[in-house]
Amino acid sequence: MNMDLGSAIVGAIIITICMLPFIMIGRSRKKKEKQFIQALQNNANKHNCQINQQEVFGTFAIGMDKEHNALFFTRSTKEKEEEQFVDLSNIKKCEVINTGRTFRNKNGDKNGTKTIIDKLELGFIPKAKDQPEIKWEFFNADISYQINGELHAMQKWATNINILLSPKS
């Protein structure tokens, strides 16, 4: 009986030690997500807006106020924190800008080429021709080595933004 109790205590301690890193990572991720949402909301408050749609990723967050046609972006890198804002009423079109390199594959694959993404940006083309295009960087291979769903998220946001920008009939 004593040996069973001792084994159970040792087993519980080992399970707790094994689970602790996952719990800590989850808490850290939730805390970071709350900080991004708060940063988006603070940026929106500066422009008298309210975030009603948002998405948070590892190093960035994007949010929208559909009522005021405003889009907000917050990004955190080791060097800096950046907040950006776009008034969608001045934008004609939104597009995903995928900058990369294509290499010829020497393995004899049927495709023969391999594409590596260097940078992913969301580009906003203004209605006024004299205004420059606005670009928000979501991924840069020099900063992050691996894409974690940024391309899919950008395509989804570009589609949603373009639907919002399309004339209502």
Score class of each variant (00 low, 15 high):
81 E>P: 01
23 I>K: 10
82 E>Y: 04
88 L>Y: 01
51 I>P: 00
145 Y>Q: 09
2 N>T: 10
118 D>I: 03
164 L>I: 02
144 S>D: 11
72 F>D: 01
38 Q>N: 13
52 N>V: 02
143 I>Y: 04
19 M>D: 15
99 T>L: 13
112 G>T: 03
3 M>E: 10
1 M>K: 13
142 D>C: 04
126 P>F: 04
90 N>I: 02
150 E>L: 08
48 N>Q: 12
169 S>I: 11
124 F>T: 01
29 R>G: 02
30 K>I: 07
137 E>P: 00
54 Q>C: 00
146 Q>A: 10
90 N>K: 05
115 T>F: 09
116 I>S: 13
104 R>N: 05
118 D>L: 13
64 M>T: 02
59 T>Q: 07
95 E>N: 09
54 Q>N: 12
163 I>T: 10
140 N>D: 06
14 I>L: 11
107 N>R: 07
36 F>V: 02
57 F>C: 10
32 K>G: 07
159 T>Y: 12
83 E>N: 10
17 I>V: 13
89 S>G: 06
20 L>I: 07
51 I>E: 00
18 C>K: 06
28 S>N: 08
58 G>Y: 07
60 F>A: 09
59 T>N: 15
131 Q>V: 05
112 G>I: 04
5 L>T: 14
58 G>Q: 10
47 H>M: 15
76 S>V: 04
38 Q>C: 08
128 A>P: 13
21 P>L: 13
127 K>V: 08
16 T>G: 11
54 Q>P: 00
50 Q>N: 13
134 I>K: 15
98 N>V: 11
114 K>V: 15
147 I>W: 04
52 N>S: 10
34 K>W: 12
18 C>Q: 12
100 G>A: 08
168 K>R: 15
26 G>F: 03
140 N>M: 15
32 K>E: 02
15 I>G: 13
159 T>R: 12
69 N>S: 06
117 I>T: 11
155 Q>D: 03
30 K>Q: 09
100 G>L: 04
12 A>W: 14
67 E>T: 06
63 G>V: 00
32 K>M: 09
73 F>A: 06
67 E>A: 13
144 S>I: 06
100 G>W: 06
7 S>Y: 09
150 E>H: 03
124 F>D: 02
64 M>G: 01
25 I>T: 08
61 A>I: 00
134 I>D: 04
15 I>R: 14
95 E>T: 13
21 P>T: 12
54 Q>V: 00
109 D>N: 09
83 E>S: 08
104 R>F: 14
70 A>S: 15
4 D>F: 14
146 Q>S: 14
53 Q>I: 01
85 F>Q: 05
166 S>F: 12
133 E>Q: 07
151 L>T: 06
35 Q>E: 13
24 M>K: 15
166 S>T: 06
81 E>R: 10
8 A>R: 09
75 R>Q: 09
10 V>P: 03
25 I>R: 11
63 G>Y: 00
144 S>E: 14
15 I>W: 11
104 R>D: 07
78 K>G: 15
165 L>R: 02
91 I>Q: 01
61 A>M: 01
17 I>L: 11
135 K>P: 08
118 D>S: 06
160 N>I: 00
119 K>E: 02
1 M>L: 15
54 Q>Y: 06
169 S>K: 07
101 R>F: 03
54 Q>L: 05
